[in-house]
Simulated scan of single mutants.
Amino acid sequence: MRVLFTSPAGLGHFTPLLPFIDACIARGDEVLVVVPPGLEQTLIDRGLPFRLGTEPDPVAHAAIRERLPEASRAEAAVLINREYFGRLCTAALLPTLEEACREWQPDLILHDPCEYASAVVAERLGIRHAQVGTSPAEIEAYSLDLAAPALEPYGGRLVDRLFATPYLTRFPASLDPSPYRTTIRFRDAVAPVGIASTPHWSAESDGPLVYVTFGTVSGGLPSGPAACRVALQAVAGLPVRVLLSGGRATDLSELGPLPDNVRVQEWVSAPEVFAAASAVVCHGGAGTTFGALAAGLPLVVMPLFADQPTNARLVEQAGAGVVVAPTGGAADTMGLPGPADVPRLRSAIEAVLADPSYRTAAQRIAAEMRAQPTAAETLDALEES
Rank of each mutant, 00 (worst) to 15 (best):
G285D: 01
R313T: 15
T327W: 09
L304T: 11
E316L: 11
P309T: 04
Q308Y: 12
A294W: 11
A318E: 00
E316D: 13
T327Y: 07
T310V: 15
E316T: 15
T310C: 15
P326G: 09
M302F: 03
G287P: 06
P309W: 04
G287H: 07
E316N: 15
G328D: 05
F305C: 08
A325I: 06
V300F: 00
V281G: 02
G329E: 04
G319A: 13
T327M: 12
L314A: 14
L293W: 11
A306Y: 12
G321F: 13
L293A: 10
T310G: 14
V324I: 05
A312P: 07
A320K: 09
N311P: 04
P303G: 00
A292E: 05
L314T: 00
V323K: 04
T327D: 12
A330H: 13
H283I: 01
G287F: 03
L299P: 05
A295F: 06
P298T: 04
E316V: 04
L314Q: 08
A306P: 04
A330S: 14
R313V: 02
D332L: 01
T333W: 09
G321I: 07
A331V: 10
A320F: 09
M302A: 02
A320Q: 10
Q308T: 09
C282R: 03
P326E: 04
G319M: 11
A306C: 03
H283T: 12
A286V: 03
A294N: 12
C282E: 12
A292L: 12
P303R: 03
G287I: 03
Q308V: 14
T333I: 11
G284E: 02
A330R: 14
L297Q: 06
A294R: 13
P309F: 06
A318C: 07
F290R: 12
A286F: 08
R313K: 15
A306T: 10
T333N: 03
A286P: 02
G291Q: 09
V301K: 00
V322D: 01
R313D: 15
A318D: 10
A312V: 09
C282A: 10
A320Y: 12
V300M: 07
G284W: 08
E316M: 06
P326S: 05
A331F: 14
P326H: 00
A325M: 11
V300E: 01
G284M: 10
L304H: 00
V300I: 02
A306G: 04
C282Y: 07
A295G: 00
L299R: 01
Q308D: 01
C282T: 13
V300T: 10
C282S: 13
G329T: 02
A325E: 10
F290Y: 15
P326Q: 01
V322G: 06
G291K: 05
T333P: 05
F305L: 13
G328M: 00
G329L: 01
G284N: 11
L293K: 00
A330K: 14
G328C: 04
A306I: 09
A320S: 05
A294I: 09
Q317L: 12
G319S: 13
Q317C: 14
A330W: 14
V322L: 08
E316A: 15
A320V: 03
A330F: 13
G285Y: 07
A330P: 06
V324P: 06
A292D: 05
P326A: 05
M302D: 01
G284P: 04
D307R: 07
T288F: 03
D332W: 14
A312S: 11
